[in-house]
Amino acid sequence: MEVRTIKVFTTVDNINLHTQVVDMSMTYGQQFGPTYLDGADVTKIKPHNSHEGKTFYVLPNDDTLRVEAFEYYHTTDPSFLGRYMSALNHTKKWKYPQVNGLTSIKWADNNCYLATALLTLQQIELKFNPPALQDAYYRARAGEAANFCALILAYCNKTVGELGDVRETMSYLFQHANLDSCKRVLNVVCKTCGQQQTTLKGVEAVMYMGTLSYEQFKKGVQIPCTCGKQATKYLVQQESPFVMMSAPPAQYELKHGTFTCASEYTGNYQCGHYKHITSKETLYCIDGALLTKSSEYKGPITDVFYKENSYTTTIK
């Protein structure tokens, strides 16, 4: 009895394709271990004539594949690729409408935090270190965002349907971005203890939790000093293409032309909904596939993004 075979390709990165001759009487799992086709788990399936010449994702289970996976995804987590594939199996079914010149995501599976993050990423200057993220990001900007969303979920250790947080998501993504040249110098002034300067680099240099107003941050924000008295913390120097200011959701007025974009969060910790506000020729609110415009805006804002380049204080 002759062994019926077909020729397929296996890959971990969709760049390096490895030619395989597979036995049609055995499952993919018996031949390769966990195997995925377009995100779908085909591990328990036997090869079919229609699979001839198709590319299958496999887990990096030998040295060659491990090197290829690390170079593309910059992670050695053995569960990463499987999590990416199972997320992709959902995100490829989502709709990605162009809204006001940006790629958004039609609401499904509690994905409003991903839509808000995706919209924000198209408006701030950011370059990702893992080629996987950078490639998928370019495709997302062009309207094909399924891979990018699935990668975000995998890097953030999230599953489809789980509630997510924009600030946490951005923080994970910033860790995989090139923020080497970003720098922030802060000064804390206390009447009792004097003053202390701190220099922050990388992710810490672009994120701040405690106030939404970048102007206020430049002037000074009140913080408790270690001595128990009130101290003032203010920005001395900022070198970065953008800054992200966050605070627990509270009524906040966004003035046209003073910011790049913002995240609105309605609801409580267990259950809520994100919308995205962007400042173009007027203010726009993007909620999944829905767009509304207004000249002014007041609502429960939790993150505001500002364009920056270089700032030095005039406070002496």
Rank of each mutant, 00 (worst) to 15 (best):
C285L: 11
T302M: 04
N268M: 10
V221M: 10
C261I: 00
A142C: 11
Y96E: 12
E296L: 09
N61R: 11
V42I: 11
A247W: 06
S104R: 06
V22P: 09
A250D: 06
C271Q: 12
A69H: 15
T312Y: 10
M24L: 13
N89K: 13
R4G: 13
D109M: 03
R139G: 10
H74M: 07
C182Y: 09
L88N: 02
D135Q: 12
F242S: 01
I286H: 07
Q98N: 12
E125D: 14
N110Y: 03
Y252M: 10
V99S: 03
K93G: 12
K7S: 13
K219W: 04
T11G: 08
W107I: 04
S246A: 01
Q20H: 14
I6Q: 11
K229H: 07
Q195Y: 08
C227D: 01
Q230S: 12
S240A: 02
Y311W: 14
A117L: 00
E281H: 02
F56Q: 02
E71Q: 11
G33T: 02
C225Q: 03
Q195S: 15
L186Q: 12
V304R: 03
L119V: 05
Q98E: 13
P60K: 00
T5R: 12
E125Y: 00
P130K: 00
T312V: 12
L37M: 11
I124R: 04
P300D: 11
E215C: 07
V67C: 14
E215H: 06
H273N: 06
Q196R: 14
Q237A: 12
A140R: 07
C285W: 11
T10Y: 11
L65C: 06
L200F: 11
A231W: 01
Q31Y: 12
C225W: 03
F32S: 04
D63Q: 08
H273C: 00
S86K: 10
L290I: 13
V21P: 10
D303G: 00
V3W: 14
I105A: 04
A40P: 05
E308T: 12
N157E: 08
K316Q: 15
E68M: 07
T11I: 15
P47E: 01
P224C: 11
Q270H: 15
A136L: 04
M24E: 12
T64P: 10
P78M: 08
S171P: 01
Q270Y: 15
S50I: 11
Q238W: 00
N268Q: 03
G299M: 02
Y84H: 07
G299R: 08
S86D: 14
L119C: 14
M170L: 11
F217E: 00
S213L: 02
N111Q: 05
G202W: 03
G220S: 01
H276K: 00
T76D: 09
S279D: 13
G39L: 06
K280N: 09
G202T: 01
Q134A: 09
Q230N: 08
E125M: 13
Y234W: 06
E204Q: 14
Y28T: 04
T103H: 12
Y297Q: 03
V206N: 04
G143I: 01
M170G: 03
T43R: 12
R66Q: 13
T10L: 14
Y113I: 04
N110K: 01
N16A: 10
L59T: 12
A117M: 06
K201D: 01
T232Y: 09
Y73C: 01
Y214S: 06
T91P: 08
R4P: 12
N100C: 15
C193Y: 00
A132L: 07
E52T: 11
Q195P: 08
G288M: 13
V67L: 15
L65I: 07
S181P: 05
V99W: 13
L114P: 03
T226D: 11
E253H: 11
T11D: 03
K275Y: 00
V21K: 13
G161I: 04
G53T: 09
A69S: 10
N147H: 14
A262E: 04
N309C: 13
L102G: 00
K7V: 14
Y138M: 14
A142H: 14
S310H: 14
Y269L: 15
V58K: 08
A145F: 03
K158P: 10
A87S: 10
A150C: 07
G257S: 02
H51Q: 08
N309V: 14
N49Q: 15
I277M: 00
R66L: 11
C182H: 02
P131H: 00
T75L: 00
A115I: 13
Y36C: 08
L65P: 03
V22S: 09
A250I: 08
R4S: 13
R66V: 14
H48G: 13
A132E: 00
T313D: 07
E239F: 10
A108H: 08
H256S: 04
D41N: 07
Q134K: 09
M244R: 00
C227V: 02
Y96F: 14
T199S: 07
K93T: 10
K293C: 13
F242Y: 01
F32A: 02
E264W: 02
V188F: 07
I301S: 00
Y113N: 02
T282Y: 13
K298H: 11
A150T: 05
V243F: 04
P130H: 01
F148K: 02
V236D: 05
D62C: 12
K127D: 10
Y73G: 05
T11M: 05
P249T: 07
D13E: 15
Q196C: 06
E144T: 04
V99I: 15
E68W: 10
G29M: 11
S294L: 15
L173H: 00
E264H: 05
T226K: 14
P131M: 01
Y284L: 14
Y234V: 07
Q216G: 06
P78Q: 10
K191F: 12
V221R: 04
N309Y: 13
Q216D: 04
T159W: 10
E253Y: 00
Q98K: 12
S104V: 06
G210T: 00
L254S: 02
C182F: 08
F217M: 07
V21M: 13
L126S: 00
P249E: 02
T169L: 07
M244I: 08
D303S: 12
K255I: 13
Y234N: 00
P78Y: 05
E125T: 06
L114I: 14
T232S: 07
M170Q: 00
V12H: 10
L235M: 04
S181Q: 15
F305M: 05
E239K: 09
S294P: 12
G299S: 01
T169Y: 05
I315Y: 15
H256Y: 08
Y284Q: 13
V12F: 09
